[in-house]
């Protein structure tokens, strides 16, 4: 998949009026979290990392977003959503139970922990979870499909799209305060917005994106 916004980096705007001090502090902290578990056990961590790789397959040509660590911090701080479905345990428990159950499913069908089986097989298991086809005593009544949509995919994707690398990928303007935007009409961009590469014009877009700031 060719990059749609080659060379665009939201972080290049860090020192411009698009970022205020609170934003710099918040993003700096997020970008500097160590890629290691604080909440999850090593076994859970390995499973979680493998899941993250399948839910968000990241490009190889840049540093990967430490998605698992971001999810782990959410658990460490017990940052909840403000609700849970009646069929679900609390957030931390749901994750612990779901990771163990997925791992158990991998061992049952492939004789190996989830992180050790091939990507294709991992996808099959995740798909089965999403379709609610996984069950067993490890789930302890928690519906697999609800865990998948309300916790697993929800938390992993929220973590990934809180990271500036994901914003670069989709051409999002990123932080914007005090400077917001001026040009609002179709196909208009401010000079501090990403340039989209039209097919065949990637080099020009890259050059323009290097000037964004």
């Amino acid at each position: 998949m060719p990059e749609r916004y080659p060379g665009y980096d939201v972080l290049a705007k860090r020192a411009t009026p698009s970022w205020n001090e609170p934003t710099r502090r918040v993003i700096d902290a997020r970008l500097s979290i160590p890629n290691e578990p604080r909440f999850f056990t090593m076994q859970e961590w390995e499973t979680l990392t493998a899941i993250c790789d399948r839910i968000v397959p990241q490009p190889k040509d840049r540093a990967p977003v430490p998605i698992a660590a971001l999810v782990d911090r959410k658990m460490t701080n017990d940052e909840r959503d403000g609700y849970r479905q009646a069929s679900m345990p609390k957030m931390q428990q749901a994750w612990q139970r779901g990771l163990a159950a997925l791992d158990a499913a991998a061992r049952a069908s492939h004789g190996a922990p989830f992180h050790a089986i091939a990507a294709v097989k991992q996808d099959v298991l995740l798909k089965a979870m999403q379709n609610g086809e996984l069950s067993g005593p490890e789930w302890n009544g928690m519906p697999a499909h609800t865990f998948f949509s309300e916790r697993l995919a929800h938390d992993i994707l929220a973590a990934y799209y809180s990271h500036s690398s994901s914003w670069n990928e989709i051409g999002f303007g990123g932080p914007a305060s005090p400077r917001g935007y001026v040009r609002m009409n179709f196909n208009r961009r401010d000079s501090w917005e990403a340039v989209e590469a039209k097919p065949g014009h990637e080099a020009a877009a890259r050059k323009a994106n290097e000037r964004v700031g």
């Binding site: 005090p178 400077r179 917001g180 935007y181 401010d190 000079s191």
Partner: peptide, 10 residues
Amino acid sequence: NMGGWRNWSQ
């Protein structure tokens, strides 16, 4: 305006 002259580009 927000940011004043420092935010002149807007």
